[in-house]
Design a protein around this nucleic acid. Sequence first.
RNA 1: GCGGGUGUGGCGGAACGGUAGACGCAGUGGACUCAAAAUCCACCGUUCGCAAGGACAUGGGGGUUCGAGUCCCUCCACCCGCACCA
Length: 865
Amino acid sequence: MASERYNAPVREKHWQQVWEERETFRTQDKSKKPKRYQLEMFPYPSGRIHMGHVRNYTLGDVMARYMRAKGFNVLHPMGWDAFGLPAENAAMERKVHPRKWTYENIDTMRAQLKAMGLSIDWEREFATCNPDYYVHQQRLFLDFLKKKLAYRKTAKVNWDPVENTVLANEQVIDGRGWRSGAVVEQRDLTQWFFRITAYAEELLQALDGLQATWPDFVCTQQRNWIGKSTGANMQFALEGGKLSKKLATLEVFTTRHDTIFGASFMAISPEHPLAAHLAQKSKELAAFVEECRKIGTSEEALAKAEKKGFDTGIVAIHPFKPDVKLPVYVANFIVMGYGTGAIFGCPGHDQRDLDFARKYSRPVIPVVLPPGADPATFSIGAEAYVGDGTLINSEFLDGLAIEAAKDRIASLLEERGIGERKVNYRMRDWLLSRQRYWGCPIPVIHCEKDGIVPVPVEDLPVKLPEDVTFDKPGNPLDHHPTWKHVKCPKCGEPAVRETDTMDTFVDSSWYQFRFTAPHAAKPTDSKALKYWAPVDQYIGGKEHAVLHLLYARFFTRGMKATKHVDFDEPFMSMFTLGIVVHETYRSENGDWLTPAEVRFEGDGPTRKAFSTSTGRPVEIGAIEKMSKSRRNVVDPDDIVANYGADTARLFIVSDSPPDRDIIWTDAGVAGAGRQIQRISRLIDDVVERKCSKDVKAPAFGPDAQTLRRIAHKTLNNVGQNIEALRYNVAVAQIYELTNALSSALSKSGEGLDWAIREAAELLVQMIGPMLPHLGEECWARLGYNTMLADQPWPEADPGLLVDDVITIAVQVNGKRRDELTVARTATSDEIEAAALELEPVVRALAGRPVKKVIVVPQRIVNVVG
RNA sequence: GCGGGUGUGGCGGAACGGUAGACGCAGUGGACUCAAAAUCCACCGUUCGCAAGGACAUGGGGGUUCGAGUCCCUCCACCCGCACCA
């Protein structure tokens, strides 16, 4: 009898309601169970959830539900990264207050996420734009300020002309704002910074400990971003140009102090103070500096630009060879932001210096001899030699290895007081101020007399004013008629509030700790934190490798220094997921079409697309990340409404490994939908067959035994694969079990009914983490009035994981010729003897004598002849 | 330029150094239908062969090994990150 079609959308609502009524996913702060903190990067409430969210939270939910079943006390919370510029843009475009816009979006998205059937404890939900949250962030800021981890300075900063605010270095991608895409300008401004550089070494070192549980590329990118280089600072005395005492010494940073005898010029950045000083007297130099500034916008253009220099006429005296005078150039390839903004040029062993030296006819002196090269004939051609070797042409360094020479020079520099060993980092301090309204106010007051005065803790939170206007460019907090005017907490005289707000990445740098005690009176609650933190498994997008993930690591250290936490790393284990991509479609006139606006004819290479409205041909374009601009988006709501959340979840976890990109296709979704129906039917058939497990295990015939082995092996493998986040493999194994169960249903045999019932129950429990609604449905159909979500993960019977009889392959000279079925306990000799008897083996040997037989019991036989 | 990653059928992808292509999608043939949908059964890397059975196959080339998709060397392609960082 055909069973009824499983009406997922209706039944899913039912089970979601049951979970809610029973408070199935309420977190227990007190428990004897081991804890597990599962977290996915919380969403920005942009309006509606997209497939990226669906993927992220599905992946996390499978793990959370599995861990629950495995007996862990699980914390799996959800919140909103709710501050940010889009809310202000909406305010400007639609005349709606950012708060209203944000909270409406949160309501919409919360409902969407709930429809996904996530095992979230919604009691712990918070939004970072709520003063209940940001008051704690302001406390943290004041503590950081006290520890000098937050400070204010004037510096060249990245200005995003579209967002009308400054950006941190990490937020500038290829010279453009990470969100606006606008070419970033450099401006001298006084801004707030976090002293992330104080932790550069620690952040770098600790990556070694994360290596095993974080993706390689994230660790590598963070290492590169921190950019440690070990070298030396070296001072050169200058001659000529009537320089002040301060300017008459030029300090450079180098990692190749061993090559000092190969120096043939000096180069300084156009932004170097010496260049600025000299430009005052030289119109030509001033023009050159201006020219460099103009090119200096795009980093890529900068890298390709021809090396150019301007001879200042000043010379530097070689520190170890006073008769050698090195001309000082202002050069366009020296950046002020790194080292000291000045170098000594050693053309023999640095490609940039060589390019420069050839252009300006400076001598090229080789000072490192490659191993095996002849010192009499070795010379530098078009390429600098950067490899290993022995020092030559370097007086007292001659014959030394590079490292020894570096050491010798560094010691001499230190002895003579003209330099020292020095470690440089590429990473800059984190610029945290933003000239925007919709962010956490920086809780300080500027007083003419007392300078920067922290807002007293009892006056927190510094709340955002509600009555703001967005009709003028610039920061609405600055325009507000009264908000910023306050009395100095110290002297009582009129003063002004800081009108900058914090980078929203600050909000997301510590939210993971707030979830452990979301209603605590302090930023963290030490008891709750001790129990729950750190996050055991964190899941999120690849794009945060050096943004959020680096900031959060720094912030945790800052919170340790200010005694809010007592550990260094926020996320024990990190997993980065791939993006959801989809085909793109373009009409004849070049407009992007949504997948819903396209219909298809044929398939494979002959597949063609047509517009549903005009019937005209449509060009099928590249498969790209789902985006509004390409219109290649599929609304999760449509999938949930048509197929149900379980189908969306199943499509997400099957086929593609979670860390790779997943191509969203209608066919794939339909296929996942069919699997849901198939499992539903299968359970109906089992129920109809009235299979019972009430009696103790009966005797099992061969079919029953086979099914039991498959079921228990699958159980074992699925568990392992879920733990390793290899969900696609786990799904494939579950399918194999459904296939086995399905074919068992057409048979009868000793103990088979019992085995079928057992396999069906195991199957239902295994689909629980991925297909929670269908799981509950089937669990109920099997006659249980308990919740599947409350069931412990079943234990596989170890006796069923190993086979009595094993089929092993038989190779001749490494090529498979036959297979052999033997008892698991068969000895090597028995296997060898049996293998040599096989007709295909005899034939393949073609009369040649057997030289050797390799027998790997339970695996393979290889006959070498 | 430097660093990281990926490369397996028409497609997504499986494979402790041990039977390559599990599982799914697409496809082909068939059953059930008046018909369609749904469902079920069979086939499904290339190639030679009626078949039995061979040969060739994991980006290319070499190597280690009884045995390599897997380890080593080298080259190629694509993706990502950083990029005149001294």
